[in-house]
Design a protein around this nucleic acid. Structure first.
Lengths: 333, 333
DNA sequence: CTGAAAGCGCTTACAG
DNA sequence: CTGAAAGCGCTTACAG
């Protein structure tokens, strides 16, 4: 136990603990010479402050909680990286709370309790109809949602509809008119991500004078395996699509595999676009709608830092752009 | 501010704060009826404890710090998931500290300071010669290293040498005698991971009466792109290898790409084994030495929980097994 | 610009 | 089994 406290410094420096406290935090109200002296003594004694004591006095934990459904999902970590980068050096810790799928029966830490351990939350991909969102809105600390739209608290979003529209329009531009869709879990629920992307898909089709067709819309469950099965189902249609838009790159990876299994070449035999900008998409030659994941993370962190700074800030809505990256899977070779 | 404290509960329940404190933590020394009463009152008042105050009193932060070099690396998050699962429900928070490559000039949070915010550390892939390791060993809280061997503190390891030996032996078993190696950054430094795997490679070769050859050993920098270039270099040799062992799956992915670019089929034209058990390896038909990543995480968490429980525990060394998963890349089709 | 003192909300010997 | 009181190590009005 390093039992050097400000009292020890105060004693050694011949000042009060109040002055030590002020000097340590660089308050301008401390005589510069005195401050330097105090800092020197602290340094010499190898002083390390007690965050717990500071937290108890100030009510600030100097930590922000990250609430995320799928810890190991690639995109999650990319965003966390962005957050970490922005917070780095601020002395604010990142506390990870895995909490996602309300179907997951694992005991969910009550947000009210988490609240006492952090000063703010960044919550990723919380479904708009989830009880967690309600709890987050009820909590009295700054919250920034990522990927969930809200008027009540700040959020950072990408334009999912626009991204999906761009993806679909890209396929239309290549001359395709029969365009399959691999979505996640549900598509009719107005409160979920997929709905937003679905609207973009529909809009693009509509813009080209085409109509959607239920048989061309299959679920891929947001997994590689699900994407593979979904593509199989599309290929098994009496009249298969000539192009497919998958709502995530991972599902598109599965779709690529299905194509491979059927001896079809992506690009020439069937066009395919994913969504995310996954690292491996480049490697696999998969065209995709890239999200600026790290930027999303840093944007969320900035929002939080600002509201921590000034707590009466009105909620902000940050919308970041996506980018179509065309690769082999949408090029005839 | 939820200003309900144990004093409010004490008042409402007609007992002392000491009793409330004990009841809340379920001490057996509290009369069961009284305890239930106190709990009921706490519940009714919607009491949420103050971790900061508890931490200040007890000196326990109820958090463990995760020190990791590459936040977004796939394997990192898999292990973090394992740790999270083990800690779930224990009330212990996970605090993420990104700190890796000593070459990375970003300001590294001093471990002495982090120490005051957590009760223990799990440190991943800290190089044995890194200053961070030294700092970790000097710190007076439980530490569990992952992937770094140590006699001073507990560690969780896989048998890298054995894994590499198995991979190489697998290739030898297929009849190959000219086996290339794609390593990470350096191979001669006895203090790094690669050295350990290199020994396995050498051992397998030696066991088959073969000798290593410098021209067959190329660096892939642990990245996809590096792996691709490394494989290109191998293919450009006057006498290229007929099989290759890559020290990571990601480098192997790059190698696969190089093969593809050269019109070579993995498995029939050249055999390839990776190392990690990456999710995508399955998808790409890459043979690999799979590490039990989540298990590594839970094992580390268990070690930490135990040392938190009883702080004079001697350091333990946990070695988990790897598993060869043979796929298309080592099968002639 | 500096200090004495109260207070943050718990836990824990100590006494009963 | 329960309570009064000190203490954990800071911060912050308040007074000077």
């Amino acid at each position: 136990m390093n039992s050097i406290g400000i009292r020890d410094i105060a004693r050694a420096a011949g000042v009060s603990t109040a002055t030590v406290s002020r000097a340590l935090r660089g308050f301008a109200t401390v005589d510069p010479e005195l401050r330097d002296h105090v800092l020197a003594v602290a340094e010499r004694l190898n002083y390390v402050g007690s965050p717990a004591a500071a937290a108890l006095s100030t009510g600030k934990m100097n930590a922000i909680g990250i609430i995320t459904p799928h810890l190991s999902r690639w995109s999650t970590m990319r965003m966390v990286e962005g957050i970490e980068r922005e917070l780095r050096g601020s002395g604010i810790d990142l506390v990870l709370y895995s909490m996602g799928d309300p179907n997951d029966p694992h005991p969910r830490p009550p947000i009210q309790r988490l609240r006492t351990r952090v000063d703010a939350f960044v919550a990723m991909s919380v479904a708009a109809n989830s009880p967690d969102l309600e709890a987050l809105l009820a909590v009295d600390v700054p919250v920034c949602l990522i990927g969930t739209e809200s008027e009540m608290v700040s959020c950072v979003l990408i334009d999912d509809t626009e991204g999906a529209r761009t993806a679909t329009a890209h396929l239309l531009g290549l001359g395709h008119t029969r365009i399959g869709l691999i979505y996640g879990r549900q598509i009719r629920d107005p409160l979920v991500l997929e709905q937003t992307r679905y609207l973009g898909y529909l809009a693009a089709l509509g813009g080209a004078g085409l109509e959607s067709s239920a048989e061309l819309e299959v679920s891929g469950g947001f997994t590689i395996a699900g994407g593979e099965q979904a593509m199989m189902r599309l290929l098994d249609l009496p009249e298969p699509p000539t192009a497919v838009f998958a709502m995530s790159d991972e599902m598109a990876f599965g779709a690529l595999r299905a194509l491979d299994a059927r001896g079809l070449t992506p690009g020439s035999d069937i066009a395919l676009v994913g969504f995310d900008g996954h690292d491996m998409a480049d490697y696999l030659g998969l065209s995709t709608i890239a999200q600026p994941l790290e930027q999303i993370g840093t944007a969320a962190a900035k929002v939080i830092l600002q509201s921590l700074d000034q707590d009466d800030r009105p909620p902000t809505k940050t919308i970041l752009g996506t980018q179509l990256i065309a690769r082999r899977s949408t090029q005839a070779r």
